[in-house]
């Protein structure tokens, strides 16, 4: 088990190093000099040169890479060229919107998908299965932004239960959660539909396995066999999907953040790209990559917790 964790940690570190090199390289290749962008047109060359020096753009490539990486390791992400404040502050404001939103959405998606998938699988071909599968078909087909607008129309405009957008901050946690509820539902439903389908098919695969028959021969009822022997074995593909979905929910919520006017990471990165604020782009993307890799690591650990075969060999 220790060896398994160690090998996953090693792969985590290597992935982070590789990702940082790729991100740095891509930002270097993108055309457009941030210094001239900041100063606008018609600027004197010596002013431009002075700014470039000040921003460290004239340093050798390797040196700039290492100062960027060591800076990040000590929590110094540099200073935003457009906002003129440390990137860490920008991120700090926004990650407490994006991260809870992603977790909230994933939580909703899981608690919808698990029962739905299990019910559908255990009543295969029955009414429950057909209606759940029909519903998930809709869930997969409907884009989440359209769904978000419908939610706003119904639950914020017709029925004034929720606010149509904005985020009040975490001073009042209940109010904060309430304002994240509609966006979380909009994000969660399509994900829940996919997850429920995966859960159902994975469980059905498992119900055809020999050990389910063995369990039935022991005297377990169909339901007992499904719960005790089917669900845990069905978890591996489900965990994979959950891991992928979390990454998507964290960074891909940009449209939902726009619709609900939430100050999240997605909007930050979008604005930073338009403003050529490359230091922000670089750092936020790296941060997202870090979170995604961390989530994958957690999924790997979850695999091992579910499946003893992974614990003893790799």
């Amino acid at each position: 088990m220790i060896r398994y964790i160690a090998s996953r940690l090693l792969s985590l570190t290597l992935s982070l190093i590789a990702a940082s090199i790729v991100i740095f390289a891509v930002i270097e290749i993108i055309p457009g000099d941030p210094a001239s962008f900041m100063l606008g047109v018609g600027v004197r060359p010596d002013t431009l040169e002075a700014l470039r020096d000040q921003m460290g753009l004239n340093d050798p490539l390797a040196m700039r890479y290492f100062s960027w990486v060591t800076g990040m390791l000590t929590g110094d992400f540099g200073i935003s060229w457009t906002y003129k404040i440390p990137v860490s502050e920008l991120v700090d404001d926004r990650i407490w919107v994006s991260l809870p939103l992603a977790i909230y959405a994933l939580f909703l998606s899981t608690i919808i998908a698990f029962p739905a998938g299990i019910i559908a699988a255990s009543h295969r071909g029955g009414m429950g299965d057909v209606s759940i599968m029909g519903a998930t078909q809709f869930g997969v087909a409907i884009p989440n932004f359209w769904f978000a607008m419908i939610l706003v129309l119904i639950f914020a405009i017709k029925l004034p239960w929720f606010s149509a957008g904005g985020f009040p901050g975490w001073d009042d946690p209940l109010l904060a959660l309430k304002s994240l509820t509609l966006p979380a539902i909009a994000l969660a439903l399509p994900q829940a539909a996919i997850l429920a389908r995966v859960m159902r098919s994975s469980l059905l695969d498992n119900l055809g396995e020999d050990y389910i028959r063995t369990a039935r021969a022991k005297g377990l009822t169909h339901r007992q066999a499904l719960w005790r022997h089917g669900v845990r074995n069905a978890m591996i593909p489900v965990l994979t999907i959950i891991g992928l979905q979390f990454s998507f929910l964290l960074a891909g919520g940009i449209i939902i953040e726009q619709i609900f006017f939430l100050p999240g990471l997605g909007r930050l990165i979008f604005q930073a790209i338009s403003a050529r604020d490359l230091i922000v782009v670089e750092s936020v993307v790296m941060l997202l990559v870090f979170v995604v890799i961390l989530v994958n690591f957690a999924v790997d650990l979850a695999y091992a917790a579910v499946d003893p075969r992974l614990r003893s060999c790799e």
């Binding site: 020999d210 369990a215 022997h229 074995n233 075969r309």
Partner: peptide, 9 residues
């Protein structure tokens, strides 16, 4: 080989 549940001792 397949008659036992792989995730239970």
């Amino acid at each position: 080989m397949t008659a036992l549940n792989p995730v239970q001792n």
